[in-house]
């Protein structure tokens, strides 16, 4: 759908915690707030459940950006979960940058259950920033990287076929 053609639209995966940001997104919905339709929201019980693997997999599978929403510091339903996320994101952002993923593609926002307007703002903002960066298209890059071994693979397959016929 959102490939590198002229109709490319940023594809954002959002991980929202059940108690604050997901509820805020619900509030934004029932308040009929309009925001960019580029986000696929995944509900987690806590932002602390967000394994860095999820973020990396989102990018590897074709996301252009990842938005994470959790309770404000001190408000975590599970007391400490959002602090763990804060620490992980600090290091993960640095690592993703080293892996060639621009900083603006990942963002962490604290949004409480009453801040529907902030959900709207955060989504619109990340969509705009990712749009400015352009497509990430990791699956396309992987395919491109693996092209270099296809030629030999085909050549070896051809000689094997000849050898099999000769038997």
């Amino acid at each position: 759908m959102s490939k590198t053609n002229g109709n490319w639209e940023p594809r954002i995966v959002a991980f929202f915690c059940n108690w604050c940001t997901y509820t805020a997104a619900d509030l934004a919905g029932v308040s009929r707030m309009k925001y960019a339709p580029n986000v696929r929201v995944i509900r987690l019980m806590c932002s602390g459940r967000l394994d860095p693997q999820f973020i990396m997999m989102a990018f590897a599978k074709g996301a252009d950006g990842v938005l994470i929403g959790g309770c404000h510091p001190g408000d975590c339903h599970y007391v400490e979960g959002n602090y763990k996320t804060l620490r992980r994101m600090d290091l993960l952002k640095r690592m993703l940058k080293d892996l060639g993923i621009e900083e603006n593609r990942v963002r962490l926002e604290w949004i409480s259950a009453s801040e529907g307007d902030r959900v709207k703002w955060a989504i619109n903002d990340i969509v705009e920033k990712v749009r400015a960066l352009g497509p990430l298209d990791m699956p396309g890059k992987f395919k491109d990287w693996d092209k270099e071994i296809e030629e030999l693979e085909a050549k070896v397959a051809a000689t094997e076929e000849v050898a099999t016929d000769a038997h």
Binding site: P52, Q53, R88, M95
Partner: peptide, 14 residues
């Protein structure tokens, strides 16, 4: 574990 580095990052950072 799918991604070793992400997993150890997760543990150590937290």
């Amino acid at each position: 574990v799918h991604d070793h580095g992400a997993k150890i990052l997760s543990y150590l950072a937290s």
